[in-house]
Nucleic acid binder design. Structure first.
Lengths: 169, 169
DNA sequence: GTCTATAATTTGATAGAC
DNA sequence: GTCTATCAAATTATAGAC
C-alpha cells in the first residue's frame, strides 16, 4: 500500500479514503477488466460474421484489451490463483467460464462450417489460443516497434496455418 | 517459511540449518530446474536428427521437465520477474538466453531444410512455442486422463498444422 | 538436526487533526 | 481529501538449549 500510495502521489493512509482495503482495489481492477473484455467479445459475436473472421476479431480484441489493462492482466497472471480462492472473487470463475463458452461457440461454428479442421477438440483449441495470447502479454512491450496488432497478426498466422511447410508431411 | 516448515514436518527455524535464507531455497529450486532442462535439450540436439524431429522431441522434453519441476515452474511463472531482478539470480537471464538460442537454432535449421515455412520469424515461432508450453503448465493436472505426452501431441498438432482447414482460403 | 524464544522489519489498516 | 501517528499481525532470520 505504501508503494501504491507513492505511485499515486499520496501517503498510504490516504488510499483508504477511496478504497476499503487492498482487496477492494484489486477487485475494481479485475472487475473493470472483465467487463471491458466481455463487452467487446459480445459486440463482435453479435455482428454475426463468419466464424473465422469472428475468431480473428476476438484475437485482436484480446490483445488490445490486455494492452489496455496491463495492471489487471499482470495481477491475474501472478496472483490470479490466490484471489480466485477468496469468496469475494468468486465471480472470476464465472467470467472465465463465460469467456470460454464464447470462444468455444465460435470454434464449434468454425468446425461446422468447415473453416476449422474437424479433428480438433474445441476446448483444446480454445486453451492454446487463450494461452498464446495470454502469455504474449508477459513479454510484449508496447514501446517496441511491434504494435499489438502486428503481434496478433503473427500469432494468427501461426495459429491458423501452423509452422510446418505444406509440402512436408 | 512457516508454511514450508509445516510442509516439511519441521518448525521454520529448523530450515535455516539446511538453507541460509529463503532466497537460497528458491535458488536451489530454480538452478536445479534449468540444469535439468538444458541437459536434456543438449542431449536431444547432439543426437543430430532432422530439425522437425528435434523440435518435436524438445517439446516433449519441455512438457516433461515442467511436470517434474512444478515448484520451480510455478515460482518462475508467479515471481520470476521479481527474482530475475536480484543480483543473486542474474544467471536466470543467461539460462533463458541459452535456451532461446537452442530453440532458434533448430527453427532456423528447419527453415533451411524446408521443413518449416520460410515466411516465419524464428524468434516469433520460438516465443509462441515456448509460451504455449509454458502456460499449459498452469492448467495441466497430472492426475487427469491426459498425460503430458498427450498434451504435447495436441500442442504439436496445432502448432505444426494450424487450426484452419487446408481447403479454406 | 530440531526446538524454543525472540529480534527486526514489513505490511495492511485505523483514528483523528487539518 | 490528505496527513501524522500508530497499531496489530505477519514474516524472515538468529541465538542458544537440547
Amino acid at each position: 500500500m505504501r508503494a501504491i500510495g507513492e505511485a499515486a502521489g499520496v501517503l498510504s493512509g490516504s488510499l483508504y479514503h477511496h478504497f476499503d482495503s487492498k482487496e477492494a482495489m484489486v477487485d475494481e481492477l479485475l472487475a473493470t477488466y472483465f467487463e471491458a473484455l466481455l463487452g467487446r467479445y459480445n459486440e463482435i459475436i453479435e455482428a454475426g460474421r463468419p466464424p473465422l473472421e469472428t475468431f480473428r476479431e476476438m484475437v485482436y480484441v484480446a490483445f488490445d484489451t490486455i494492452e489496455q489493462h496491463r495492471a489487471a492482466t499482470r495481477t491475474l497472471q501472478n496472483e490470479g490463483r490466490y484471489f480466485a480462492a477468496l469468496p469475494r472473487f468468486a465471480y472470476l470463475k464465472d467470467r472465465e467460464r463465460t469467456i470460454e463458452e464464447l470462444w468455444i461457440g465460435i470454434i464449434k461454428s468454425g468446425k461446422a462450417s468447415g473453416a476449422i479442421r474437424s479433428n480438433l477438440d474445441p476446448r483444446t483449441v480454445y486453451r492454446f489460443a487463450r494461452d498464446g495470447i495470454w502469455v504474449a502479454a508477459r513479454w510484449y512491450k508496447p514501446t517496441g516497434k511491434l504494435t499489438h496488432r502486428d503481434l496478433a497478426d503473427q500469432f494468427l498466422t501461426i495459429l491458423l496455418a501452423g509452422i510446418a511447410a505444406p509440402t512436408t508431411e
